[in-house]
Design a binder for these strands. Structure first.
Lengths: 160, 160
DNA sequence: AAGCATAACGATACTCATTCTCGTTTCGCA
DNA sequence: TGCGAAACGAGAATGAGTATCGTTATGCTT
């Protein structure tokens, strides 16, 4: 029953996601096509940032060139976030206003990425300080990014 | 006089830097050649992370293929740190144990990067929490990375 | 409900940062 | 002075990501 409730909740969240996505794309004057919906669904269900190869695998009916093109459009519309810089593959996840603010735990050996949230008190303390620092330097702060870099259990074990 | 004292201090720091670098490379069984010394000097004097093109400009006697090869070696020896993921250029800076721990303020428009340090109390609070989170997830934490993303004064102004 | 303007598609060619190759040069040591 | 190993550096190769362009699907108007 909790599983059923869980899947119901997930379905509700998915519906919200799609309507928010459709609205955002409409605002940008582009359509919410089947491919775009497929990509959004894949990102939503993965629960972690995905590389292009992973996304091609997860959305197997969407050809590579369409994956690239549509991710760029979804990012332009502000509903998907591109995060380069872990290994040599960029990763994509749903935008913060769809996911909630969070950070990443990254395995420097195998590249796996997990989402992390900071205790709210620390997060807001951090945000306040970052705002202060940015203001002092004349920067207009739009966001921040915090990665925890280390080794996951299996890579740790494998290190003979 | 304060300028003279400053340059003396800088010279002393540079000497320390080179001896630490030489030792680290020796430990790795490779030589501290002229090119490698030139690159370390350029990174030290820049005071901010540099891209390959910037580094080629700053170390004009070192050809491109040597810049790439030697940076890889310096990174392998743990005295230089590679940071990909701001724009499409990786950036390099001296390793933490040579520079001190710090974070980055990044202009999302022009890509300029400045170094930032957090108030020590907040930094250590943050580190403790990150360690706790990593442990709970079975990760062996080796470092963290915090980027402040925004727009610098001139890019802000240019935004018509 | 047929035509039409426009958006999206997708196979393929291309770009360009980075890596690899390999013959040459330099270094450290005997 | 010679010798083996390390470093060099110009050019070729790699590969993630982008641009092209003819084709296909969509939605709007009459």
């Amino acid at each position: 029953m909790s599983a059923m409730a869980g899947s119901k909740a997930a379905a509700a969240r998915a519906a919200e996601l799609h309507s928010a996505a459709g609205a955002a794309l409409l605002r940008h004057g582009v359509r919410y096509t089947t491919h775009r919906r497929t990509l959004m669904t894949a990102l939503n269900e993965a629960g972690q940032p995905l590389t292009i190869p992973q996304l091609i695998e997860a959305a197997s009916r969407v050809p590579q060139s369409s994956v690239y093109r549509n991710l760029a459009i979804l990012e332009e519309a502000g509903i998907v976030h591109r995060m380069p810089g872990i290994d040599d593959f960029a990763r994509y996840e749903l935008a913060e206003h769809l996911m909630g603010h969070h950070h990443h735990l990254v395995c420097s050996t195998c590249g796996v990425v997990e989402d992390v949230i900071l205790p709210p008190a620390l997060e807001s303390e951090l945000e306040d300080e970052l705002k202060r620092i940015a203001r002092r330097r004349g920067f207009t702060l739009s966001s921040h990014r915090l990665d925890l870099v280390g080794d996951c259990t299996s890579c740790d074990r494998a290190r003979a």
